[in-house]
Every structure is written in C-alpha cells, then in structure tokens.
Design a protein around this nucleic acid. Structure first.
Length: 434
DNA sequence: TCTGGGGTCCTAGGACCC
DNA sequence: TCTGGGGTCCTAGGACCC
C-alpha cells in the first residue's frame, strides 16, 4: 500500500486527552478511591464519567445510574464536582505551557500543543518531549493522560485516541495510512453521523478512503469544514493551535425537568432561573449580551425558540425580564408539555463598552450594577443561588426533589474527606457551607 | 445514542442598497 | 413598473464537538 507522502515533520501538533478525567480527579482528591470503580454524575442520574475500573465492568458514559449500579454494584457513585475538576485542569494547562507557548484549551480535559520547532530546546525528538509532558502531569498531579503527536490536529486526535488510556502515539507522515486504514469514517473528528451517511453513499467508509478521494469530489460535494478535515487527514495542517483565552460567543443555560410540565408559571420560572444563571456567568466573565434566545423543548423533543434583540447590552436579569416574558409568550403553547427550557445570551461584548442609549437613565443603571455586585458577592461567599429573583421561585414548587438537591449534602461529604490531598495539590478549600 | 448541558462554526436565503 | 447585475448584512437552521 502507498503511504501518504509528506515531509517528515513539517509541524508537530500534540493532542493531550486526560484519561477518564472526572473520575480520575475524584481518585486524586480522595485517594481511598484509587483502584476502585468510580462513577461521577450522581446529581444527574446518568454516568458523566467512569473510572477505568468501572469501565472494565461495562459501565459506559451516558448510561443510567440504575443500570450502571446493576452491572457494577460495587461502584462508588459521587456527584460531579466541577470546581475541583476545573482547578486540576488549570494545573494541567500550567504544565503544558512550560513546554510550549502555543497551547489551546480545547476543553476541560483536552488540549492541543504546538511543538513545532522545539526539538532543539528540549534536546530530543518530539516523542521525547511528549513523554516528558506525560510524566510531568502524572508525577505532579497523579493524573494519567493519553497523547498523540502528528502533523495536524485531526491526526493528533486520532493518535491520542489510539493508545487510550495512558498512551503515547506518534503518527509521522509515512505512517498516516496505517492509522486511517481501519478507522471508520464517523470516528474522524468533525465528521458526524450525517456526513458519514452521505459519504457511505459514495462508498466511503473509512478515513483512508476519504483521505484518498480526489479533490474534485471533495470540493464539489462537501462544504468547507469537510474540505478542511480532508486536508488535515492528508497531513496538511489547516487548523491552527489557538492561544486565545476563553472569550465566549454565547452563554447558555438549560434545564430538563421530569415529569414534563405544561404549567405556564412553572415553565416560565425555569426560564427565569436559566436567565439568572446565564447572567451570573456573563458577569463573571465581564460580558454583556445584546441578544437573548429563549427556547423550549416539548415532551416529543420538538423545539421552538425566538431570538430577541436588546437595545443595550446587559447582563442583568431585571433588565431582561420584559424581553424574556415576551419571548416566552411567543414560543409557549398551552397544553403542550415541556421537558426543557433554555436561554442563550448572544452577541456578547465586554461589559464596559456597553453604550447608554438616548433613553437610558444612567443613575438607574448604576444602581442596578451595584445591586448585582452585591448579589455576585453573596453568591460567591455562600454558593450560587443564594438569592433569587421572585419570578424564579415557582421552580421550587414542583421539582424540589430534582437536580438542585444534590449540591448541599454532597458538598458536606467533601468537606471532611480529602482535604489533605487538596492541600498537597495546592487546591483551595471548598466553599463554606451555607 | 433514545435524548444532559454547554459550546462553535458554516451556509443558504432574504432584505436592502446601488 | 420591469429588468439586470452586484454587494453587504443578517438570520435561521444545520452539523458537530466535549
């Protein structure tokens, strides 16, 4: 078979993927869980992450907890603790940045690092640098990661997945075809079920068949993202490793509730809570929205939504309620049972540059901003959702037994266990109890 | 994979302008 | 009022990702 021809290392892109990240974090912070099957996601009722011990017993991500407990009765099930995961994630990124300034924070547990040109600096081949990164993370944080190095992001992703867990896979140009040969097309990053089904109609079922397809076909029948993936599979680096710190294009909050409800005040209260939470996040990042999307999902998974424009950027619920209500009235249909509400803050811009319009009352706006500063301070000290807008209260009526509950009792356990480990890792203590 | 929550980017087509 | 050509901006919706 013909290899895909490429100069050996025109660029070296590294992809790191932490192994069973959430579950591993739990094992790091609670060493007594090491070697045991651990499942996170207790608050949601489905498996958010499973340790390899649990996976070995057949536990899968997304599985219902009831089923997970059936296949693995000895599993320790804990609620997700995003604060801790985020802190460990920060520590991990800090390590990556010791090796290269070009680090992309792809997600909480995945990163791309551009190693191009660093062999001299580290006195060794790319594989050795990768190994060094892997060992450093393990030694300092007690987490294992899988690493892939290749010529492009898409190939680096394929490489890191190849050796999971704790893998280290290099795919130089001359070996690309070996890794693509048996890789189903839908496993390629960026190619989902829809495109796979389309490609299948043309007899393309593997990544290699796709990579080998002639350019005329690719350009003629597929849109830009798929053309880019095609180049990347052929070892041509299209996607840059971007340093950009997180600046959100949008912030959304959704909530699913069971049983579904057709009660207008209840459904609206859910939305109102979504809005409050989204605004808290926006303010935390110093952002204000210029658009508001309101949407509902009915029991049969049909979605309806509207996008509304703000005449001035804002991240304050009280300013947005009128709009929220307007949106709600546009999408809500009586006697329809809804299972999910959602809000998206879009058109985000930095808070400061929001201009007053002609009709705004600056004094009122100032007041609002100091009110919400107080709200944010309280939330920070006592946990989110300490204060609510009155419109959000009806959520308590029906679903008090749902989601909300997990936070406090579970937090209590964490206060007493694992603090030594937290200290060793330099993680701050968890919030005080309310 | 029967459905949790949070994101990004691209494209087609309409509105509007010259 | 119709016809032609061309540009920009915006929006809805699709597809995909972790």
């Amino acid at each position: 078979m013909q290899p895909i021809t490429i100069r050996s290392w025109p660029q070296a892109i590294l992809h790191v993927d932490a192994d069973a990240f959430f579950a591993s974090c739990e094992q790091v912070v609670h060493p007594e869980l090491k070697g045991k099957p651990v499942i996170t996601g207790r608050e949601r009722g489905i498996v958010a992450a499973a340790s390899y011990e649990a996976k070995a017993k057949g536990v899968k991500t997304g599985m219902r907890l009831s089923e997970a407990r059936r296949v693995c009765p000895e599993a320790v099930v804990v609620p997700s603790d995003y604060e801790t995961y985020s802190l460990l994630s920060l520590r991990m990124y800090e390590i990556f940045r010791r090796f290269s300034p070009d680090v992309e924070e792809y997600s909480i547990d995945e990163a791309f690092v551009d190693l191009t040109g660093l062999r001299r600096t580290f006195h060794g081949p790319y594989g050795k640098i990768a190994r060094n990164i892997q060992e450093t993370v393990e030694k300092e944080l007690g987490l294992t990661v899988s690493i892939g190095v290749s010529l492009s992001k898409v190939l680096a992703k394929i490489a890191s997945k190849h050796g999971k867990p704790h893998g280290l896979t290099l795919i130089p140009g001359r070996d690309i075809h070996r890794y693509l040969l048996r890789l189903p097309i839908e496993k390629v990053w960026g190619i989902g079920p829809n495109t796979s089904a389309f490609l299948r109609k043309f007899g393309i079922t593997t990544a290699l068949e796709y990579a080998r397809k002639d350019e005329r076909f690719i350009k003629g029948r597929l849109s830009k993202p798929y053309q880019e993936v095609w180049h990347e599979l052929n070892g041509r680096n299209i996607y840059p490793v971007t340093n950009e710190r997180e600046d959100y294009q949008s912030i959304s909050k959704t909530r699913t509730f069971t049983p579904a409800s057709s009660l207008a005040p209840f459904v609206f209260a859910q939305l109102s809570k979504n809005l409050e939470n989204a605004c808290i996040k926006a303010r935390r990042h110093g952002l204000a929205a210029t658009r508001l999307i309101v949407f509902l999902r009915s029991q049969d998974f049909r979605e309806s939504g509207v996008e509304l424009k703000l005449n001035r950027a804002s991240a304050y619920p009280t300013e947005l309620y009128a709009l929220l209500r307007e949106g709600f009235q546009q999408v809500y249909r009586p006697r329809t049972r809804y299972r999910l509400t959602g809000v998206v803050l879009g058109g985000l811009e930095p808070e400061q540059i929001s201009q007053y319009t002609l009709f705004d009352n600056p004094a009122k706006i100032e007041k609002m901003s100091s009110l919400y500063q107080a709200v944010d301070t309280l939330s920070k000290r006592f946990g989110k959702h300490t204060l609510h807008h009155a419109a959000s209260l009806p959520t308590k009526l029906q679903v008090q037994h749902e989601g909300e509950r997990g936070d406090i009792p579970s937090r209590k356990n964490k206060l007493f266990r694992g603090e030594n480990e937290r200290q060793r890792l330099g993680l701050p203590f968890l919030n005080h109890k309310v």
